[in-house]
Write a protein that binds this DNA or RNA. Structure first.
Lengths: 225, 225
DNA sequence: CGGGCGCCTTACGCTCGCGTTAAGAGTCCT
DNA sequence: AGGACTCTTAACGCGAGCGTAAGGCGCCCG
């Protein structure tokens, strides 16, 4: 899941970002309201996490601005206060959920999952399946035809990304952004290499190949030949 | 965790109750507002789940009545509507959280855990088991294959935390929060050291290893190799 | 039919994450 | 107050895994 985190407290931000990355998410950070809003408008995130109090532009202002512009991206607001009025303000402004500090990362993660799911189709699903290939995000477990497959962290991220786009063609640029969080061309063949490794892991020795190359475009995960 | 579920739709109630029981909770049911309020006043529940619209006595009325009487039991309100105003009314009345139908059982359970955790110690299961490793939280006792294992306080906490997340991958950040109650990165390898010691204690000398490292992510306790 | 471009694979070096050991700091018990 | 036990920090070594590069194959187009 691609998350934008807007939090001015550097330490808190780093800590959260690290925790969310450990859980397999791609996290981008902004440290004040202005750049946060800008990022939210341009990058396409699955969910936003906003601190309530921010320099330059308050968290609630960001929400209002985005909602005013017609964005429906799920937003979770963080705050030091757990007052009912605070929560109400957050909701009124257009936030989808509200979490008071101090909270546990586990709870934050659960709420983010829930929020993205609520949006409908593109939401977070813990278990993914295509043909006889299954992936369990929480357990970080992949099996094919019931047999366990060992994957490295990158391979896992890559496969998860592909599975979340089953049937579509996924371009290299999409992969770079969604898996590596690169916003430039690395001018190397990183992706090819990892795709190759992933193929060895999930398709080798099976009749039906799932990971296909779309020449000139990218890759796709599908059961049709 | 002992839960009171007040929901007039019989089918929905049974479904929820079953789901929550499968998750190890004790669930009692009421099917209208009056009996719900009565039950809430007398039985001592860890958390209440109230439907918004109820015959005889509305969900919000129950909340107000309980809060008026000084009760601080966590309350989650269910509703068919996801309007901001609805949520706000729920919060104003004294509800702690609000969930719109349709929701996933997973999300409901997560919120209940979060609510009860906020209150303090609850949702407590005393005995945990994985393969031939057993832990009794109350007795602070751990055995493997029937033989007693001596653990220090930290080691015990750590193991308990891992066992409460059996099958999932537990990240370092989660461990720091759940075991050390640190909400920052200590920049040392405390966790590694304690994991190492815990391994010596529970896995050394056994064929089947239970505590596994998930590189780049964290650790997991599982019986599969 | 030949050349070029795009993709696949293999190989290799380097980084950094992890495990272990050991020593110092802190705490509790007697 | 002293000693034993536990927790934490630090140092070090190993190896997995990541990314770069390079060679080869095949597809597409001229």
């Amino acid at each position: 899941m691609k998350i934008l985190l807007v939090e001015d407290d550097r330490r808190a931000s780093e800590y959260l970002a690290k925790g969310l990355r450990e859980l397999g998410h791609v996290v981008e950070q902004a440290f004040d309201g202005e750049s946060g809003l800008k990022a939210a408008e341009t990058g396409n995130y699955d969910v936003l996490v906003l601190d309530r109090m921010l320099p330059k532009l308050d968290g609630l202002e960001i929400v209002k601005s985005l909602r005013g512009a017609g964005s429906s991206v799920p937003i979770l607001i963080l705050s030091a206060l757990d007052e009912v009025d605070e929560r109400i303000q957050g909701l009124r402004a257009g936030g989808d959920d509200y979490l008071a500090k101090p909270y546990h990362l586990e709870e934050l993660a659960a709420r983010l999952d829930a929020l993205s799911r609520r949006q409908g189709e593109a939401g977070f699903v813990g278990k993914l399946k295509i043909a006889d290939l299954e992936l369990d995000a929480r357990a970080r477990r992949v099996t094919r035809a019931g047999r366990k497959i060992e994957l490295t962290a990158r391979e896992f991220q890559l496969l998860e990304f592909l599975m979340r786009h089953t049937g579509q063609v996924v371009t290299r640029t999409m992969i770079l952004e969604g898996v590596w969080d690169y916003h430039f061309d690395p001018k190397t063949n990183v992706i090819d290499v990892h795709i190759s490794r992933l193929r060895q892991a999930i398709d080798k020795g099976f009749e039906r190949q799932l990971l296909h190359t779309v020449r000139g475009a990218g890759y796709t995960l599908t059961e049709d030949p």
